[in-house]
Design a protein around this nucleic acid. Sequence first.
DNA 1: TTTATAGTTGGGAATGTTTCAAACAATTGA
DNA 2: TCAATTGTTTGAAACATTCCCAACTATAAA
Lengths: 99, 99
Amino acid sequence: MDIKQSPVSATDEFKRRIFFALSEPGRYKIVRMLYRVGHEMGCSELNRHVEIDKSTMSYHLRTLREIGLVTTRTQGREKFVQLNVDRINAVLPGLLASL
Amino acid sequence: MDIKQSPVSATDEFKRRIFFALSEPGRYKIVRMLYRVGHEMGCSELNRHVEIDKSTMSYHLRTLREIGLVTTRTQGREKFVQLNVDRINAVLPGLLASL
DNA sequence: TTTATAGTTGGGAATGTTTCAAACAATTGA
DNA sequence: TCAATTGTTTGAAACATTCCCAACTATAAA
């Protein structure tokens, strides 16, 4: 039960990044929104629901993408954002449901 | 399903702060350690397990205390840190178990 | 009283995060 | 082609966080 012998693994790292992502109000709202609607949303649709400057939104979505919480699909000039529910549930089961 | 109609409540705020707390490696380790051992630990005992400068440790423990994840009890010149398991499970059930 | 131990606090440097304006690229429709 | 729409990027300002040194308080032991 020594913490030095249970270092932060890659999975722990992923968990920590998920926590980091969810520690910011805007990203918290985005993630919860995506989970609740249960399907992908266009960025503009998200922007209509969450009052965030579009470049700030873009920044947050990039953060979520880099951490691996969302995946983006481009269609025409729209981008659709999808929550990686399974991937999150694999390391932190039930977390999304309790947001 | 409008996010503006489901603002971040006090509970959401608490959740967000828990995420913030766990997004830092040192605090993540401290919390996991406390959860795994299942009982309170003295600061010096924690210090022996987690390699953190004592003032940094004090800073992190204060943060955890202010957010409400731990409670501290003083006995003599020692301080015992206890994880508020029930309080955390009340808002994010199963989270601690998946750290 | 003196010394050692446990932990906190203040200060400051280094670093990281968030926000927005402005400029940009890409696609669509007139 | 020209204009509108979607979203990204860059850069800078403002702000927050983390870390460690040094000084401090308080308790316990010698």
